[in-house]
Amino acid sequence: MVDNPRTPPIITAMEEKEVEVKAPAQEKVPDESPKENLIPVFIMGKRFFVPESFTIITAMEYVGFQFKNAVGCREGFCGACATIYRLEGDYKLRTGLACQTVVEPNMHLAQIPFTPAVKAVYDISKLKPELVSIQRYYPEVFRCVACNSCTKACPQEIEVMDYIQAVKRGDLETAADLSFDCIMCGLCAVRCPAEMVQFNIALLARRLTGRYLLPRSHHLEKRLAEQREGSYEKDIEELMGLSRKGLTKRYTERDLDFEVF
C-alpha cells in the first residue's frame, strides 16, 4: 500500500455488508524528503527521492540504476527511452521520453524499452509508390477508428492520426511529411486500439516518397555522369602530388563562393 497510496482496498459491495472495513494500515512515510530539493517518484512502484530538476533518466541514475537498455542518445533522437507515467490524483496515462522529461513529485513511471512490432520485409526497388504497397504489408491501417490516441501519445507532437488518414487516402507524400520527425519510440503503437504499428507504416511511406515521389536532382545526375568520365580523380591526384607547402597555398588561396546553385 505504501508504494501506491492511491490504490483503494478492493472490496465488493457484498463483502462490505459482512466485513467491517478498516482503513488500510499505513506505514509511516516521512512527509519531508530526506534532503532539500529532493522529491518522491515511484519507479515501477517503488519510491525513490530524486533531485527535482533532473530528467527521468538522470534521476534513475542518481538513485543507482545503470541502464543496459531503455536508454540511447539521451537527446531525444533515438526513441529508446519511451516511458509511461501517471501523476498523483490524475487518471490520465501520460507518455514521454525519459531523457526529455523532467521528474515531477509523485510521478509513477515505467519504461517501455521495446515495442513488439510488425515490420514488413520488402524490396524497395520492386514497390510502387502507391497505397497498394502499404495495404499489402500493413492492411491493418484500415482498422484505424480515428480515436487520436496515437497523436496524444506522441512525444514528438506529430499528428500521427492525420498521417495515417493520409496513408489511407493514398497520399504518401503528405504522410511522409507529417511523420518526418518520428523517432520510432513505439508509444503510438502501444496506445493504438486498432493494433497497428504506425511508425513502421510511416517509414515505408517515407521510403517510397524519397525514392519515387520527390523530384530527382538534375545537378546530382549531371555530377554522376561527369564522374563516370573520371575527371575529378585526376584533379585530386594532382593535389595529392603537391608538397604540404604547395597544398597550403592552394587551400588559403581557394575562393569562397556561397551562391546557392
Partner: peptide, 21 residues
Amino acid sequence: PRIAAYLEELGVMWDKDSEGR
C-alpha cells in the same frame, strides 16, 4: 555524390526544392 544518390535510391528524403534541386 554516389553515396547521396545511393541513399536516395534506398528512400532517404533529402531536402529538395520543388524542381528537385
